[in-house]
Amino acid sequence: MDKLKTKLRLYLPLIKSLQTILLLVTGLAGYMTARCPVTTAGTMIGLTLSLFLSVSGSTILNMWYDRDIDAKMPRTQKRPLPSGKMDATEALRLGLVISILGVGIAVAMDALYGLIIFGGLFIDVVIYTIWLKRKTAWSIVWGGISGGMPILAGRALGTGTVDWIGIALTLAVLFWIPTHILTFSIRYRKDYKLAGVPTFPSTYGETFTRNTIAISSILAAVIIGIAAYGVGTEWGFLRLMAVLSAGLLSLAIASVVKPSETVNFGLFKYASLYMLSAMILLMF
């Protein structure tokens, strides 16, 4: 029993629980935009389980592949793999088993849903992490596309097809990702430099990065508003979404006009809160 507890304590940091929960919520929101109120508990359990396992699996595989650069960055060097607390082969096996389980459940539920889930996992692990992350700062576009797959998958499971609302929701997440990742890469620019990972701040400078954050925030807010209107979200919830979007835009503009570490950190945190709130509002 103690051995199992120790293992679980090691495995938990491998799945980046907050990021996993956020992606899980986007998937649930995507499904609920098509099927609300939810009357099929079995589908919801299957959706939750398959998304949780697929996202966790891809995160573990990313951690396994990136263990060498994680060891160079103070922010990540205490993680189980770079710190040597966990064997790399064990992490690889765990990541593969969890990923296969997640995609397997997804395919068994619905072929299209399973295909999108597999696509998200493939883009995240193979295209983003293994192929592009160490070569170009633009890899975040692929990270963004993979981040948009859970919401597209959820929507596709609910409607049985890929419709314009599903694509709009995916684009909203895609344009939200730079706000999240680029503010993070400004905050930890020294870490990324140490690891030799190209980022927007190191490649194009901070001004260009902040402008990109502002533009992508505007696009994310506009597209999520259009998608919410398409879904048929009630006016009250649309008003609340508009208020939260205005907060995001104000912070993004403040980061361009009067850049500071405080505004950058505020924008990073607010962006996560914004996405979580927007997803919850889409569920109604």
Binding site: E234, R239, Y270
Partner: peptide, 30 residues
């Protein structure tokens, strides 16, 4: 208040209440 509490007011009042409570909401979050 933004979602439900002001739903019965006129369009102009809804807009101004939304701005007021919206600033309160975003300020609290920040």
């Amino acid at each position: 208040q933004i979602v439900d509490g002001i739903a019965d007011a006129g369009t102009f009042a809804i807009t101004t209440y939304t701005i007021g409570f919206g600033v309160l909401l975003v300020a609290s979050l920040l």
